[in-house]
Design a protein around this nucleic acid. Sequence first.
DNA 1: GGAAGGAGAAAGGACGTCCCATCTCCTGTA
DNA 2: TACAGGAGATGGGACGTCCTTTCTCCTTCC
Lengths: 243, 243
Amino acid sequence: MTVAPAAVSSARFSAQIRSQALQTRIMELILERGLDVGDALPTESELSAELGVGRNTVRESLKVLQALGVIEIRHGFGMFVAPNNFSALVSGLTFRGRLSLRHKGEEAMELIDVRQALESGLIGSAIDLLTADHLADLRSTMQAMQDAAAKGEPLAEHDAEFHRRLYAPLNNELLINLMDVFWQVYRQIHEALGSGPVNLEEQVQIHWDIYEAVDGRDKALASERLQRHFDGIRLKLKDVAAS
Amino acid sequence: MTVAPAAVSSARFSAQIRSQALQTRIMELILERGLDVGDALPTESELSAELGVGRNTVRESLKVLQALGVIEIRHGFGMFVAPNNFSALVSGLTFRGRLSLRHKGEEAMELIDVRQALESGLIGSAIDLLTADHLADLRSTMQAMQDAAAKGEPLAEHDAEFHRRLYAPLNNELLINLMDVFWQVYRQIHEALGSGPVNLEEQVQIHWDIYEAVDGRDKALASERLQRHFDGIRLKLKDVAAS
DNA sequence: GGAAGGAGAAAGGACGTCCCATCTCCTGTA
DNA sequence: TACAGGAGATGGGACGTCCTTTCTCCTTCC
């Protein structure tokens, strides 16, 4: 027998709201004082005094704000308004993904779906805005990836860099960060499962194929090859999850 | 007094790494014990003892995990593995958006861009999977929106519901959550700026147009109308930011 | 005069303790 | 049988204390 939903939500109202209210107050304090990225916040003691709550309480809120990428805490120095940073999402999403893998791995698959939709959906716009410089960057990344593969080194970082640069023309930090988060979550889930043997040459070839399509400004082909790239990733994930 | 040797060896790393390591340890504890969504975690005191850290320290990590949507804390009852929930991201992203509006509002615009890319890019796949039931849900949402507009009530909730149901056929919780986050952030930024007068009838008409395109299974038209919907949102945001 | 190094201050990190707030569950009484 | 209230458990919060890290500035030596 479950409790009435209304009872639960009202019960949690006061408890949940208070801690979030404190976080909001700190954020509004930043906005009101006109603090910008890199500026220092008041010290923990000052905040504790100004907001009328204990230092431990304010610290809990500050840790949350740090986790949300709002502030940056430097031990022994102070706290500062942080530059855009989504890395905090990674751990939470990774946990979600690993949790779901105990069932049917649905959430992990959903993550790939979102990545696929974002990337294959946006490649057209990216190609529209692509300049020679962007293409050169992309090519040098591919070269580095190929070199790494030849030495038998892991491609992970080059892979991430490739996808990052692919969408650099869109000039959208948020998008890049979001894609990066998804990429890292996929990688961590994969590692947590114990990645099987990977075919480095095949990986490189897949990315070269995408590069060629982009180089030729063939939006449909690029989209299709990205789509297939993700189909492969999905299969691999399903494979590992089954074992 | 000696705890696990592993805990001591990481002492040389920065404090930021250590607090994140504690969060990771708690998440792995959940995974190792096979806890699932809704299951109870050990109490704060138990965690404090098991992990060999003080209760206040463990509380800071728990608050972060709560903010990341990993656990749910119910005062006086206990802590539980939370169902998927991204609502915590909203406040962080909203802060980012408001901060950016003091300059040129770039980050807020990027947020709209990502939403636009996601929605207009995925509407095709959604239409492919659309069933009569989904369409009926969508229609009833539209009806509710129209009724609200007739009474002069705010459309916000109906608007959110419309977009949520539009992509329900994809059966991707992560995507729905993500879109919801973006929607809420946009709304909060808009409210923080002080929304100007809104034309309710026009809002309803725009959504009816999208509904019609979806009803007719015209992917291109639906995508184009969504695109224009977001162009309108973008203009409105720019307008308000300029004032 | 300039660079290297150490002392001190300032800030965050960690912990322990105490008490309060709120929830659930059980008991007792009408 | 049903409802009210209390007991116990659990999270919430506030101090106070001491440790660790980092920066800054001053001293010292070359």
